[in-house]
Structures are given as C-alpha cells and as structure tokens.
Simulated assay, not measured.
Amino acid sequence: MHPFKMLSEYGPLLLEGAWLTIQLSGLALLIGALLAMPMSVARCSPRAWLSVPVRIYISFFRGTPMLAQLFLVYFGAGQFRHELQAVDLWWLFRDPFYCALLTFVLNTTAYQAELLRGGILGVPRGEVEAARAYGMSAWLRYRLIVMPHAYRIAFPALGNEVILLLKGSAIASVVTLFDLMGQTRAIFAKSFDFSIYLWAALLYLLITMVIVRIWRYLEKRINPHLQRRVIQAPKAVKTAVTATE
C-alpha cells in the first residue's frame, strides 16, 4: 500500500492513539510533580527515617526498567486479587489504563524527586541563611525561597524527563492499551505494511518538537536572566578581543 494511502486510511486511528499517549503521559507527569515535591524535601532531610525510605524508592525505580515495573503492577496485582477486592481496589488494578498510569506515576515521581533534590542542593546557602535570619519557619523558607529557586534550576532537566516519559510510554501497548504504539501494532497486524511504523515515529517526533518548543518558551519566562546572559555573551567576547588588539 502506498504510504500516503496508508496514512489517509489509518490516520484517525493513529491520532486516537496519540491522544491516549498524551493523556497517559500528561496525567503521570502532573501527579508525579505533585508527589515529587514533598519527596525531594524528605530526600534532603538529615533525618534518616525520612530520607532513607525515599532514597530506596528512588533507587529502585531509577535502577529498574519501566517495562519490568509495568509487569509487576499489571501481572503482579493478579496474585493479590482477593486482598485487593477486600479493600475495594481491584477495579484499579484490573484496568490496564490505570495500571500503566500508576507505573508511569511511580517512575516519573522518582526521577522528578531526584532532579528536584539537585535543584534544592543548588540553591545558594546564603539565601537560605538570610531567610532563617529573618525568622522564617522551615515551611516558609521552602515555599518562598527554596522550592521556587530549585524549580528554576531543575527546569531544563525536568523538560528532558517529560520527553523521556512520553517516549517510554510506548510500553503501555504491551498491556493491551491502544496508545500510539498500540494502534501502530494493531494496524501493522492488519496491513503488514511496515511504513505505518514510520508514520508513528514521525508523529512521536512531532509531539516531541511541540513539547520542546513549549518548554523553551516556559524556560525563557522562568529564567529570563539566563537569556540575557546568552545574548550579551557575544558582545563581551567582542569587547575582550578588541581590547587585546
């Protein structure tokens, strides 16, 4: 089948799958962002009973493949069906969408928490000490000083996590979800036309390019001082070269 005829015939199915991919990734990133904030604070805590469990959690989900994590949630939950039914949670673990969403949330929370930990450690100690000198409580220091600065530092790396999760979400197709990759596999099983994978790859690329554009715009709004430095750097170099001549 001609590639463009393939696109005209199966394009709506690919778009439907792409929308499911965006839903899965977007929800996971949003929920993960909400959970990562307190976990990053706990990870930086000097209290072992707070930091050690979070460190173990982050190490597990960053050190194991997301496919294995998905299998543990989707197939492993079936081993505890009666217990889950007793606490009225079986409805969640029997649905492949919720299993994939839970896996992605657990995975991205670990990555986002570690990125935020790096951001928190990158906050100048002088700012924290100044806030403490003004008598701010720990809650106020984190809310007004530490976390806003930490997010500015970690923002570019968080953009990479968005893209990585979007691409990694393709594994949802192995638990019978018809996301973009799931629809692609189903179409290939009907048509045996390999060009459908090319169209799927281009659609992933298009979504990624849109995310990159949006993230760069947000980065300029959040860190405008960095943009000014980039713009002024060539002028400074030119001035230095002129002075040496």
Rank of each mutant, 00 (worst) to 15 (best):
3 P>W: 11
4 F>H: 03
7 L>V: 09
7 L>T: 03
8 S>H: 04
11 G>V: 07
13 L>A: 13
15 L>D: 05
24 L>H: 01
29 L>Y: 04
31 I>L: 10
34 L>I: 13
35 L>N: 02
41 V>I: 12
46 P>Y: 08
48 A>F: 12
48 A>G: 05
56 I>D: 06
58 I>N: 03
61 F>K: 07
64 T>I: 15
64 T>H: 10
72 L>H: 03
75 F>Q: 09
82 H>N: 13
85 Q>V: 00
87 V>G: 00
89 L>C: 11
90 W>M: 00
96 P>L: 10
97 F>D: 02
98 Y>E: 03
99 C>L: 07
100 A>N: 04
105 V>F: 08
108 T>S: 09
109 T>C: 10
109 T>D: 11
109 T>E: 06
110 A>E: 11
111 Y>I: 11
112 Q>G: 02
112 Q>D: 06
115 L>I: 15
121 L>S: 08
122 G>M: 03
125 R>C: 02
131 A>R: 00
131 A>Q: 00
140 L>V: 00
141 R>N: 05
141 R>Q: 14
142 Y>V: 00
146 V>I: 15
147 M>R: 00
149 H>S: 14
150 A>L: 13
152 R>F: 07
156 P>G: 09
156 P>F: 06
157 A>G: 13
159 G>D: 05
160 N>S: 15
161 E>H: 02
165 L>P: 03
165 L>E: 12
165 L>K: 03
168 G>P: 10
169 S>L: 08
170 A>N: 09
174 V>L: 14
174 V>W: 05
176 T>P: 11
177 L>W: 04
182 G>M: 10
183 Q>G: 01
187 I>H: 08
187 I>R: 04
195 S>T: 13
199 W>H: 12
207 I>C: 08
209 M>A: 12
210 V>C: 12
217 Y>V: 14
222 I>F: 11
223 N>G: 01
227 Q>I: 11
229 R>A: 09
231 I>K: 15
233 A>L: 14
233 A>C: 08
236 A>Y: 13
